[in-house]
Design a protein around this nucleic acid. Structure first.
Lengths: 130, 130
DNA sequence: CGATACCATAGTAATCTGGTCGGGTATCAG
DNA sequence: CTGATACCCGACCAGATTACTATGGTATCG
């Protein structure tokens, strides 16, 4: 169970944007300078934007900014945006999968663990990372 | 960030074996009856065995048994065996990756989260799942 | 109007996933 | 001893995902 580079890059990018929270829009090139391939990062920022975590300014002198104060953005928000929600294969995401769902102890266990892990991820904000 | 079927099947299989802890070796076919493709499961049981979570008995009337009492086997043990350890891409697993490692706040954050998530996974034993 | 910089889609090589297949080897029953 | 049972192991394979790259478009500033 490992985090993809999408998640890693997402965290790096958001960390950079939080550092420059009040300095106006930061261009793609600036953000990429922390060590992320530019064109790939462009896609990732698109995901972050569509999930409401950042907003963008087009045109010359444009760039990206975080959409909320850094203490209101959590690691969970970022990872969910970059990799989709934490789930046990398709089973937990889809209620119908396990016919004997209510009797499925494994599933029940995994649901509890998922809640706890998500709480853990939600307990760290961007601001905490600075 | 989702768990693969390897992890799911691993949990199912270990749960089955824990249920039949003192009933002698359980054959591959028996275990597979919970809904896992037989030949695929055979591979997965190999991983569990090489990680010391189960042991096998060859020959007629052979099969698999858990190698330790069910209260000594945790969900973390099983997921680590099936999917490898939780890591942030290759960065956390490999100390040399991040040149400015000590200054890398993102990495530090992720290390703390990893420890907490692992603790969470280690807090549930097979016995708890029964 | 043209340089800057975001937006969107498509392609792509490498890797991973979720299997299947075939041929071993160990053990027990008769 | 022999055959049936059942684990062991490596190879193979189609399809999905990952991590990019490429190209062309659109908005905005000066």
């Amino acid at each position: 169970m490992r985090l993809s580079t999408r998640g890693k890059y997402g965290l790096y990018a958001m960390h950079y944007l939080a550092q420059h929270e009040h300095e106006g829009p930061q261009s793609l090139s600036r953000i990429a300078s922390v060590g992320i391939p530019k064109q790939y990062l462009e896609q990732l920022l698109g995901s972050l934007r569509r999930n409401g975590l950042i907003h963008s300014v087009r045109g010359a002198n444009g760039g990206y900014q975080i959409a909320k104060p850094s203490e209101e953005i959590t690691v969970l928000d970022i990872l969910d945006a970059m990799e989709g929600p934490l789930a046990l294969s398709d089973c937990i995401a889809d209620d119908r999968c396990c016919a004997k769902a209510t009797k499925c102890r494994v599933r029940h266990t995994w649901e509890r663990l998922t809640v706890n892990i998500n709480r853990e991820l939600a307990s760290v904000s961007l601001k905490d990372m600075l």
